[in-house]
């Protein structure tokens, strides 16, 4: 499970997150909602160790693993998966190559043998089936020429292959039409599991119409200002963030 305590992060010497406490037990789905500029993406990048996001106080533990001590690739191998808001294109590299490299790097980190070719093919087919993707997509270059919806589903596919213990989804719903949103949500629901926690970062309630969270937290002004069950999202949808922004300021 993910345990964050007094998590403080600055970007270019500007404090963005001002002390966050959060516990996501195994198998639970937590949503973090908040207005623009509240620090939602900063939380995603700081947890995954991106350069330029300086954690100057606090702790972040994934199970027994101290995330803050690890390089980004090792955090990934330890079980942290970030579904990007804007997935990146890697020209000339096929999905198959990319996923094989990623899976084998993670296996190597855990002291396991590289995946056998046949096993890998099966794994990919299975994952494509779970997400409802045409396996032909695996022959294409990573995110090159993908539609917005394909890019997001491709993130789900990678998640299904890499089987992380914590998934952080950074505004996965942004830029998706209602059909694509349903498909992506369906994929997430199929990957919900006792051993896997989710942290859904979102601006809108609509994603939560399809993925029911166990807890909802409100992030405003770099702090978690309110927490509640799934019904909190509906209240937010009705009232907006104005009250929180006033209290945070």
């Amino acid at each position: 499970m993910l345990e964050i305590h007094d998590f403080q992060v600055s970007v270019q010497d500007q404090p963005i997150l001002r002390g966050i406490d959060l516990n996501v037990p195994d198998g639970e789905v937590h949503a973090i909602m908040g207005p623009n500029g509240s620090g939602k993406s900063t939380l995603c990048y700081a947890l995954s160790g991106r350069d330029g996001y300086e954690v100057f106080a606090g702790s972040a533990m994934l199970g027994e693993v101290d995330l803050l001590e690890l390089e980004p690739e090792d955090r990934a191998s330890a079980g942290l998966f970030l579904a990007f808001q804007y997935p990146i294109e890697v020209p000339g590299v096929t999905m198959t190559t990319f996923l094989r490299e990623a899976l084998n790097a993670q296996r190597r980190y855990r002291g396991e043998e590289p995946v056998a070719p046949m096993e890998f093919v099966q794994l990919m087919r299975q994952a494509a089936g779970t997400i409802g993707l045409n396996p032909e997509m695996l022959k294409r270059q990573v995110n090159v020429g993908f539609s917005g919806g394909e890019k997001k589903r491709n993130e789900m596919l990678q998640m299904a292959v890499l089987k992380p213990s914590l998934v952080v989804m950074d505004e996965t719903d942004s830029g998706l039409d209602i059909d694509a949103l349903k498909e992506v949500s369906h994929g997430v629901n199929r990957l919900r599991d006792q051993g896997r926690s989710f942290l859904l970062i979102t601006h809108y309630q609509r994603l939560l119409d399809y993925i029911t969270p166990d807890r909802v937290h409100v992030l405003a002004g770099g702090r978690i200002v309110d927490s509640g069950d799934a019904s909190l999202a509906l209240t937010l949808e009705a009232n907006g963030y104005t009250d929180y922004q006033l209290s945070a300021a």
């Binding site: 995954s48 991106r50 350069d51 390089e71 980004p72 690739e73 990934a76 191998s77 998966f81 970030l82 990007f84 997935p87 990146i88 890697v90 590299v93 190559t97 990319f98 490299e101 990623a102 899976l103 790097a105 993670q106 980190y109 990678q158 890499l162």
Partner: peptide, 17 residues
């Protein structure tokens, strides 16, 4: 960063890219 977030070490990522 995208490669590294999937577990691919930086030098391997350079090779792949």
């Amino acid at each position: 960063f995208y490669c590294r977030q999937r577990g691919i070490p930086e030098e391997v990522a350079v090779g792949i890219i």
